[in-house]
Nucleic acid binder design. Structure first.
Length: 876
RNA sequence: GCGGACGUGGCGAAACUGGUAGACGCAAGGGACUUAAAAUCCCUCGACCUUUGGUUGUACGGGUUCGACCCCCGUCGUCCGCACCA
């Protein structure tokens, strides 16, 4: 009998077609079984899938298939994050309409994903650029507007001069646009904002409930929200020192305890008082301008010198009217945090100290470490910003910093200037409202109308959707919607006069902030079917890259709250479980160096090992190639491997198996040709072993062995089943793979024995049972191979619809335990003894061992530690 | 600067709650089969030594413990996030 090699090119499309025909992965909302929603972050339709997608979707698919087998009603949908700038860039560069470009890309990527054999419910597929989707997003926007969660304000914005658009703070990285890399400028524009700060406290508090999220992500969000507790303190201005006779300045501080160390106030260049002062003094105006300009090149901030200018304004100390302090404009004070004004305590803050030294202001230490000496404690070049004991602080002296904080807060709250308390406790957040206006075409139009008489009005819901016009041009910079001949002209919904449409579109992060909810009922006319959303949400397992730890995940958490307030769903958090997977990385190859360095694709080179050294040569010419660092796969470094090529030559199962092997899923995995071949060898080996024994097993009913030489087979099968099940529950795919290898190695002998006819019926029944378990275990990872093996055994049901096997505890438990026997903590012997042997029996048996006897040399042991089922340690 | 994570063979890694360090895979070396090759199968594989055994070994230096990759203190290194946030 000759066994054919396993041919994925034949088997994989065949099974994919069968799953598709029988609608195995189409999910019914009304299915009564317990729900499980597994979701991978949906892709941007760039045109081709990459290995990162393969890894991400392979992980999600293992979870989906495993949970389905475990009896859950699984929702596993797929869609496209389809709005965004690359489509417009393509339009500009290649004269192709963004819509056409996007939908073509979606079509080819869909084909690629389907070739992976993912168990997705394609009937729920949508793209965020579908009118059906952004129509509902516009409805959400209007509902949020009604609830006061959307507003418009003139504000300084981050302007990307290359992409000609506004960026959110989160999209500015090191002072550069996250996409274009251009230096960001500051401009004043009227923008639309989502009131994410409405939920600052809740977004922070609820992080504690997300116990299936990585600690790292929760911490990053916590820092991003940045809660601080402090005091706003009003400082009385000395009469006739302020330009327009202003009466007071309010500062925010988290360290009111250090109030007696204050030596100046500093305000932002954008502070109203600074502006007033600038209007009357050219030097001040010039300085403010300089501060604003410096603010544009944020990259230089790291080394930026602390600079200030005395405004001439003087304020009185809250606890001592005779103590006057100068007010400076300082380049390091931000207008949009706190009140845009601070008091400087040089001894307790490094920045203030640098500033004070530069401008010759007093430095009075007011806090020293608890074990310090008040007489000798001084502050030199390094400020002391820790807690401790108050000194040089009048009535606060001797208190702890905490006590001093409380005392100052209480005293100033009881003091009044004007008709209000001098100070109030105040919680501040770093989180800012989310600016969503983008001066771009390829995004969801903001559904509002500007009327000269009636103001800014939402588009009435019956007039939705506001569709993007198709006839636009991209031959000049700026927003094509602005220069469209007719699109923006519309009648005012209130008075009927000529009015203008808003031409800004929404940040594409809006699109991805609620797509997980839309998947629960994508056919619905409203944004959600509330019952469906409440049933399916939260997503039980969300899987994606760590790069979305803040933006996408925080926005989605905000949207979930906003959608609850607007009655579209009733859940608290969108994602119950979150898993952030590592990247797929690859060696880099290059020829030449310096400016002439050229990157070479792995497909164009050959690698061989000479004297233990790996050498790379160019396939075409034999030229030597430099092997470089292992880096994230990127087009620019050409270290990419095309999933299509891998699937064509090895099959989807091999690709899936490989990206899940070896490395823990949250760490990077190194793509290597040798590694892929190892994975491929596994699929071939499994097929060969199963198909060789298939004839002998076809007519056998599977049954675990309880005794005899087949017992060991059933034991390893059930133990592996239990272990792999645990690994899948924990998403420890690499460990599952290792155990599957072990299992196959253990089954190789028995399968050959069966194949050559050397086994009785009981043995064959046990082997068949073990093989059925093996097939179930590999099925989530290599689903096509599993189906093929199962069919070879004569099974007519599909693995994709089969239940997960149940392990037998009696076969999992060891009846005999092998105890390592240590003497003084070092292993010297082993003891095999019945599982239920009591402590005494174990001790007696251990003392009877030759190795123990010779170590004791006739003496009594000092101590014997027996850890049941684990280890024995004898102290001599 | 602030916050966090990590550091184990030639490589990717495993080791459950403090209990045999290196499972499993890759690479390498040796052997079997073959006219030959591929494929497959078997063996070896942290280091050192006087090799049926012993010593040593989880970045480095200490500590706690019968017992430490794991807990504590300190040092070094790598990576990631945030960054004038008062």
């Amino acid at each position: 009998m000759s066994i054919e090699r396993y041919n994925p090119r034949d088997a994989e499309p065949r099974w994919q077609q069968k799953w598709n025909e029988e609608e195995v992965f189409v999910t019914d909302n009304a299915d009564p079984r317990e729900k499980y929603y597994v979701l991978e972050m949906f892709p941007y339709p760039s045109g081709r899938i990459h290995m990162g997608h393969v890894r991400n979707y392979a992980m999600g698919d293992v979870v989906a298939r495993y949970k389905r087998a475990r009896g859950y009603n699984v929702l596993h949908p797929m869609g496209w994050d389809a709005f965004g700038m690359p489509a417009e860039n393509a339009a500009r560069d290649n004269k192709v309409h963004p819509k056409e470009w996007t939908y073509q890309n979606i079509a080819s990527m869909r084909t690629q994903l389907k070739a992976m054999g993912l168990s997705l419910d394609w009937s729920r597929e949508f793209a965020t650029c579908d009118v059906d989707y952004y129509h509902r997003q516009q409805m959400l926007f209007i509902d949020m507007m009604e609830k006061g969660l959307v507003y418009r304000k003139k504000s300084k914005v981050n302007w990307d001069p290359v992409d000609n658009t506004v960026l959110a703070n989160e999209q500015v990285i090191d002072g550069r646009g996250w996409r274009s890399g251009a230096l960001v400028e500051q401009r004043e524009l009227t923008q639309w904002f989502f009131k994410i700060t409405e939920f600052s406290q809740d977004l922070l508090d609820a992080l504690d409930t997300l116990d299936h999220w990585p600690e790292k992500v929760r911490l990053m969000q916590k820092n991003w929200i940045g809660r601080s507790e402090g005091l706003t303190i009003r400082w009385e201005i000395v009469p006739d020192t302020a330009p327009n006779n202003d009466r007071e300045i309010t500062v925010y501080t988290t360290r009111p305890d250090t109030l007696f160390g204050a030596s100046f106030l500093a305000i932002s260049a954008d502070h109203p008082l600074a502006k007033e002062a600038a209007a009357k003094d050219a030097a001040i105006e010039a300085f403010c301008e300089e501060c604003r300009r410096a603010g544009t090149s944020l990259a230089a901030l790291e080394t930026a010198e602390k600079k200030g200018m005395d405004t001439g304004i003087r304020v009185r100390h809250p606890f001592d009217p005779s103590w006057e302090l100068p007010v400076y404009i300082a380049n390091f004070v931000l207008m949009d945090y706190g009140t845009g004004a601070i008091f400087g305590c040089p001894s307790g803050d490094q920045r203030d100290l640098d500033f004070a030294r530069k401008y010759g202001l007093p430095v009075v230490p007011v806090v020293m470490p608890a074990d310090g000496d008040a007489a000798s404690f001084t502050v030199g070049d390094i400020a002391y910003d820790g807690g401790g004991v108050m000194i040089n602080s009048r009535f606060l002296d001797g208190m702890s910093t905490d006590q001093a904080f409380e005392t100052v807060a209480t005293k100033l709250a009881e003091t009044s200037i004007g008709n209000a308390p001098q100070a109030e406790r105040k919680v501040n957040f770093r989180l800012r409202d989310w600016g969503i206006s983008r001066q771009r075409y390829w995004g969801c139009p903001i559904p509002v109308i500007h009327c000269d008489d009636c103001g800014v009005l939402p588009v009435p819901k019956q007039d939705l959707p506001v569709r993007l016009p198709d006839d636009v041009t991209f031959d000049q910079p700026g927003n094509p919607l602005d220069r469209h001949a007719t699109w923006r002209h519309v009648a005012c919904p209130q008075c009927g006069k000529d009015a203008r449409r808003e031409t800004d579109t929404m940040d594409t992060f809006v699109d991805s902030s609620w797509y997980f909810a839309r998947f629960t009922a994508p056919w619905e006319n409203q944004p959600t079917d509330k019952n469906a959303a409440n049933h399916w949400l939260p997503v039980d397992q969300y899987i994606g890259g760590i790069e979305h730890a803040i933006l996408h995940l925080l926005y989605s958490r905000f949207f979930t709250r906003a959608m609850r307030e607007t009655g579209h769903l009733d859940v608290k958090e969108p994602f119950k479980g979150l898993f952030t997977q590592g990247m797929v990385v690859h060696e880099t190859y290059s020829r030449g160096n310096g400016l002439t360095r050229e990157w070479v694709s792995p497909a164009d080179i050959n690698i061989e090992e000479v004297d233990g050294q790996r050498r790379a040569t160019l396939l075409s010419s034999g030229e030597d190639i430099t092997i470089g660092a292992i880096e994230k796969m990127s087009k620019s470094k050409k270290n990419v491997v095309d999933p299509d090529d891998i699937i064509a030559s090895y099959g989807a199962d091999t690709a899936r198996f490989f990206v899940l092997s070896d490395s823990p899923p949250d760490r990077d995995v190194i793509w290597s040709e040798a590694g892929v071949e190892g994975a491929h060898r596994f699929t071939q080996r499994m097929w060969r072993l199963v198909s060789e024994a298939a004839d002998a097993l076809k007519t056998i009913e599977s049954k675990p062995a309880k005794e005899g030489d087949a017992l060991a087979i059933s034991q390893i099968a059930h133990r592996t089943l239990k272990a792999v099940q645990g690994d899948y529950d924990k998403l420890a795919f690499n460990k599952a793979v290792a155990r599957i290898y072990e299992f196959v190695n253990a089954l190789a002998g028995p399968l050959s024995r069966v194949a050559t006819g050397g086994a009785d019926a009981g043995y064959r029944a046990a082997v068949r049972e073990a093989v059925e378990i093996l097939i179930a275990l590999v099925a989530p990872i290599t689903p096509h191979l599993a189906e093929e093996c199962s069919a070879a055994l004569g099974n007519t049901n599909m693995i994709a619809t089969s239940a997960w096997p149940v392990y037998d505890e009696a076969l999992v438990i060891e009846n005999e335990i092998v105890y390592p026997v240590q003497i003084n903590g070092k292993k010297r012997a082993e003891l095999t003894i019945a599982r239920d042997a009591d402590q005494n029996a174990v001790q007696q048996a251990v003392l009877a061992l030759d190795a123990v006897k010779s170590a004791l040399n006739g003496q009594a042991p000092k101590k014997i530690i027996v850890v049941p089922q684990r280890i024995v340690n004898i102290v001599v």
